[in-house]
Every structure is written in C-alpha cells, then in structure tokens.
C-alpha cells in the first residue's frame, strides 16, 4: 500500500516533535533549520536516522543537500516510498 502524503506528514510531525523535544511543533513546507530551536548538525543526523528507521529506507548523501526545507523532505520521502511502497 502506498502511503498518502497526509500520512507522511503526520508521521514526520511525530518524528520532528520527538527529535527536537517540542511536543507542539507543527510542520510547514517552508520550515527550515533556522526556524526550529536545536536543529543543528547533530540533531539533523538524529532526525535523518529517525526518518530512515520509521519509513524503512536510507537517504543518499546527495539527498541530504536537496532538503532545503521541510517541503523538500516530504517530496523526497514520497519519491522514496513510490519506489519502495510500504
């Protein structure tokens, strides 16, 4: 079954909240590391690992630089899941 975008966002929101310790954090397409407290290289790595574990795929290093904002991240996750549907 292919995951719907809405479900991806819901799952991703929980991952973000857990990673950055902010239980009320909501995602927007234009959200960037500048907008979220504690979003630095270390927490970014944890975020990436959490996303990979939750969705069951691995990002490529080149993918990481494509994700300038959360919207890019969602698009990328969608494309990864299209190739490897859950």
């Amino acid at each position: 079954m292919i995951m719907q975008k809405k479900e991806i966002i819901q799952t991703l929101t929980l991952i973000f909240r857990g990673t950055f310790g902010q239980p009320t954090l909501d995602l927007r397409d234009d959200l960037t590391a500048n907008d979220v407290e504690n979003w630095d290289s270390l927490t970014h790595m944890l975020l990436i690992t959490n996303i990979e574990n939750q969705f069951g795929f691995k990002f490529k290093l080149k993918d990481l630089n494509k994700m300038k904002q959360v919207g890019d991240m969602i698009t990328l996750i969608e494309s990864k899941l299209d190739i490897h549907p859950l």
Binding site: T32, A33, N34, D40, S41, H44, M45, L61, L64, N65
Partner: peptide, 11 residues
C-alpha cells in the same frame, strides 16, 4: 552558518 555543515561540505 544556516546550513547543515557535514552535508554542505560534501556538496
């Protein structure tokens, strides 16, 4: 300064 350092460096 606003970039994730390790992936930007690789880029």
């Amino acid at each position: 300064h606003d970039q994730i350092v390790y992936s930007y460096i690789y880029g």
